[in-house]
Simulated scan of single mutants.
Amino acid sequence: MADNKSKTGKQDRNKVNGSENYEIQYFKEKMGVSSQAVTGAIRATGSNDRKVLEDYLKKRHSK
């Protein structure tokens, strides 16, 4: 089912939808990484939760 942009709420803000380019674009700019890094983090963690992805990317890109 498509993301209904008229229904926004806490759940939408806590997730990064890997199928929505604008969400990947926002998150990659926020984290200072590439789009591939964001989609790779989603695949590697098996999660689309923003906090999980932020923690993963911080650990991966701080080395």
Results as ranks from 00 to 15, higher is better:
G32P: 06
M31K: 10
E29H: 13
S34F: 12
D3I: 04
V16H: 04
D12V: 12
D3S: 12
Y22S: 03
Q36P: 05
G18W: 01
R50E: 13
T8P: 01
T45R: 15
T8G: 01
N21W: 08
I42H: 08
T45V: 07
D12M: 12
M31H: 02
E20F: 00
G18R: 04
S35E: 14
E23D: 06
D3N: 12
G40M: 13
A44Y: 09
K5P: 14
Y26A: 15
K5G: 08
E20P: 00
N17P: 00
Y22K: 02
G46N: 12
K15Y: 07
S35F: 04
N17R: 00
K51P: 04
T39G: 06
T8E: 00
K7M: 11
S35Q: 11
N21M: 06
S19C: 08
G18D: 11
Q25F: 07
M31N: 03
E29G: 02
A41C: 10
K10T: 10
S19L: 10
V38K: 08
V33Q: 05
G18E: 09
D49P: 08
T8W: 06
S35C: 05
S19F: 15
Y26P: 00
I24T: 03
K5Q: 10
G40S: 10
K28D: 00
K15T: 11
A44H: 09
G18Y: 06
